[in-house]
Design a protein around this nucleic acid. Structure first.
Length: 419
RNA sequence: GGAGAGGUGGCCGAGCCGGUUGAAGGCGCACGCCUGCUAAGCGUGUGUAGGUCAAAAGCCUACCGAGGGUUCGAAUCCCUCCCUCUCCGCCA
């Protein structure tokens, strides 16, 4: 959520942010309601002030055993009027809140302006596309040859996009998760959190998924709960409505969770194999930092995610997303795309974003600064990493001419744990 | 799911037969004093948000889980909901 004061004093800046992000938010309506609300609030305060002072007078008279009947009848009409204003004010506040929640975050000044992903800026490449002495197969063929996946049965019991990992495939998936978790814990200083997978509406609103993306969420109507699309949601909301001590910052959490996405509107796109799923596993990093630190933290998190890909020796590139590709809540985002030689494409395995105070303001996450002033923290998060496309890259990159897969050495200990 | 208890400031904890209670007291915290050091002690201060103001001070308004209601007036009374705890039931 954007500071209302900021919107009032920089309406054009906000307007262009909405435009550049391909969002639609009715700024004029918002400003008009804000105006109306201010007037109502003023009327309310004035009248309430009068009521308060007369009420005190009444109390005084009663204490002195004097007659207060006249004042009381006088005030009953004031109370009536006050009730009317208060109702209208309440409605006004609700409308304002609703509109405010549809205003996207403002892109950071350096973010390239552009309509869609074609305008994303390639920041760097790491490694090289692997060379093969044979025609590399795609991960589905590799998985099939090695009995690692059973997608048809996943589709049978749930639907397409719900993969089943079988035998060594399941073990490999588990090894990836554990390896990445421990990597961030031990090498990057994160603290682990294990969190709920179903969250309430307020939580979903806090990080910005709601109200915009409701149709992309799995919703349990009976309890009005949502399956999380990413651990970002429960982890960022860990501190919702709380005031942190400055000395606590920065806070760095890492969490593994399954993620659930309906992918409404993207049916038939990138559906082959593990490229796009309704349920997948992800290790997620989240940080809470002081505002001055957030862009340095963004670079650090990018590095944290890159370290995983580098450890696996996978070729990848880093993109800086343009305004049109930036998510609703983000001010700046890097995408990491790993090279998948089988499908012959770069696939997004991580998205690292700085939300500045946008989520903190929605979720009410604050801290007291050195002068004792209340400030919103800045929140960031980044995948570190999502497993399906990582799995794709590993299977396709490390496939052998005989059809087998040579798993990177550093995964061996995770695959050979003994009792 | 049934029965009971409870949700007050950073924390603990009074108030809860309605009227200076934004809220006693304590702890914590900040600053100052005192003191070989530490500890203790003493003093002062210590919520958030909105408005007014050039700004500060000051003043006004809101907030005692959330939302409604009663009343001239509600932390205090009534209703609904949420959450926590205890007991019972059920179940991994």
């Amino acid at each position: 959520m954007i500071d209302l004061k900021f919107i009032r004093s920089n309406p054009e800046l906000v307007r262009s942010a909405i435009f550049n992000k391909n969002e639609k938010a009715d700024l004029d309506a918002l400003l008009a309601i804000d105006d109306r609300r201010k007037k109502l609030q003023f009327d309310f305060d004035t009248l309430k002030s009068r009521q308060n002072s007369v009420s005190a007078e009444i109390a005084n008279k009663k204490k002195n055993k004097e007659d207060a009947g006249e004042l009381i009848t006088q005030m009953s009409s004031v109370a009536e009027e006050l009730k009317g204003i208060s109702t209208r004010l309440g409605e006004c506040n609700q409308d304002l809140e609703k509109l405010l929640l549809t205003v996207p975050n403002i892109p950071f000044e350096s973010v390239p302006i552009g309509k869609d992903e074609a305008c994303n800026r390639i920041v760097k490449h790491w490694g090289e596309k692997p060379a093969f002495e044979f025609e590399p197969k795609d991960h589905l063929s590799v998985a099939e040859a090695n009995d690692l996946l059973d997608l048809p049965r996943g589709a049978k019991i749930s639907g397409s996009g719900f993969p089943i990992y079988t035998g060594f495939g399941a073990k490999l998936e588990r090894a990836l998760i554990n390896f990445m978790l421990e990597f961030h814990l031990q090498k990057h200083g994160y603290t682990e959190l294990a969190v709920p997978l179903l969250v309430n509406r307020k939580t979903m609103t806090g990080t910005g998924q709601l109200p915009k993306l409701e149709e992309d969420m799995y919703h349990v109507g009976e309890d009005d709960l949502f399956l999380i699309p990413t651990a970002e949601v429960p982890v960022t909301n860990f501190y919702a409505e709380e005031v942190l001590k400055q000395s606590q910052l920065p806070v760095k959490y890492v969490a593994y969770t399954p993620c659930f996405r309906r992918e409404a509107g993207s049916y038939g796109k990138d559906t082959k194999g593990l490229q796009r799923l309704h349920q997948f596993n992800k290790v997620e990093m989240v940080r809470f930092v002081e505002p001055e630190q957030s862009y340095a933290a963004l670079e650090e998190m990018l590095k944290d995610a890159e370290d995983i890909l580098q450890a696996f020796g996978l070729h990848y590139r880093v993109l800086e997303l343009c305004t049109g590709d930036l998510s609703f809540a983000s001010a700046k985002t890097y995408d990491l795309e790993v090279w998948a030689p089988g499908v012959g494409r770069y696939l997004e395995v991580s998205s690292v974003s700085n939300f500045e105070a946008f989520q903190a303001r929605r979720a009410g996450i604050r801290y007291k600064d050195q002068e004792g002033k209340m400030q919103f923290v800045h929140t960031l998060n980044g995948s570190g990493l999502a497993t399906p496309r990582l799995m794709i890259a590993l299977l396709e990159t490390y496939q052998q001419s005989d059809g087998s897969v040579k798993v990177p050495d550093l995964l061996k200990p995770w695959l050979e744990l003994t009792l």
